[in-house]
């Protein structure tokens, strides 16, 4: 949590009179002058009722956003241009319903008393790169819109916005060096590794499990298959800077989909050929944090 966020978390709570609230007060003042003018006790009473309503609203407004707790925030990286979705789980912790809330300016669903609720907050993504962590600020004007109270609920975590993949384009790659392993081909047993979700269930070594009380997957030295592919920044020199990034992004996605092993070379970064989710994420991450275009860099 950086300093700015921390100080933001501190200025948690704020209640302010809305324009509507100010007009309400003005009306009360006018009614009071009426009351004075006509010596009417009933008009005075009317003013006092309205003042009372205002005070009640003040407190109701505050508790409406006070006794609410953010539980978890879940967000998945998306590509540039896609809509980012923060899934925020919130719960009431004050035995009261929370109505008419907005979170970062968006209307969100009410939280019933002693219930949990998931809010899906969307955000437009305009630029690839790292989107910083931010604070989720909720506010409400409930019940009569006389006051607006706002506070920070949770921290929205940092998230990567991947580059927008190019629409299509045949991959350009250079095949060199090592050949790719096709680990799925059963040949000779290389060893065991800890089971991870996504591994082929048929390769689980049940005997080893009885021994180690852990799921183990057999690893085979696959037969030599297709050559591993290198995606190289330098292969895309005829394109514009952003186009190069999005094309590489497209190819990374395509190869991953095909199950082929691929490596990536970017200025100042290189990763050996592989094919896994973490590899995919690493490649996309590197592409997304490529410095944004400055004229001199376009000729790298």
């Amino acid at each position: 949590m950086n300093d700015q966020l921390k100080s933001g978390m501190k200025s948690v709570f704020r209640v302010s009179l809305t324009v509507n609230g100010a007009s309400f007060l003005c009306s009360v003042l006018v009614l009071f002058l009426f009351g004075v003018n006509y010596n009417s006790n009933l008009l005075f009473t009317l003013c006092f009722v309205l003042i009372g309503v205002m005070i009640v609203c003040f407190w109701l407004n505050i508790i409406n956003i006070k006794a609410i707790k953010g539980l978890t925030v879940n967000v998945q990286p998306v590509h540039e241009g896609q809509t980012l979705e923060y899934k925020v789980d919130v719960a009431d912790e004050g035995k009261r319903a929370h109505l008419d809330l907005t979170a970062n300016g968006e209307f969100v669903s009410d939280v019933e008393s002693e219930q949990q609720q998931q809010w899906i907050l969307t955000a437009k993504t305009k630029k690839r790169g790292l989107r910083n962590a931010s604070l989720l600020r909720i506010s409400s004007r409930w019940p009569l819109g006389l006051f607006n109270s706002a506070r920070n609920l949770v921290e929205l975590p940092a998230v990567v916005i991947y580059p927008e993949p190019a629409v299509d384009g045949a991959p350009r790659n250079s095949v060199e060096g090592d050949e790719a392993h096709l680990h799925n081909d059963a040949d000779s047993l290389m060893g065991l590794k800890e089971y991870q979700p996504g591994d082929n269930a048929r390769r689980i070594d049940w005997r080893a499990m009885a021994r180690l009380e852990q799921l183990q997957v057999k690893l085979f030295d696959g037969g030599s298959g297709d050559a591993s592919v290198w995606l190289d920044w330098d292969d895309t020199q005829d394109m514009s800077y952003e186009q190069r990034i999005s094309s590489l992004c497209r190819w990374v996605l395509d190869y991953h989909k095909q199950g082929a092993e691929f490596g990536l070379r970017l200025p100042g970064f290189g990763v050996a050929p592989a094919n896994s989710y973490s590899h995919l994420h690493q490649c996309l991450y590197q592409l997304s944090v490529m410095p944004h275009q400055v004229r001199s860099e376009s000729k790298v």
Binding site: N41, F44, F48, V49, G52, V56
Partner: peptide, 14 residues
């Protein structure tokens, strides 16, 4: 309910 909640205060001010 709002009205009823405001009544004690009304009485006091009155």
């Amino acid at each position: 309910k709002l009205f009823a909640l405001a009544l004690p205060l009304t009485a006091m001010l009155f």
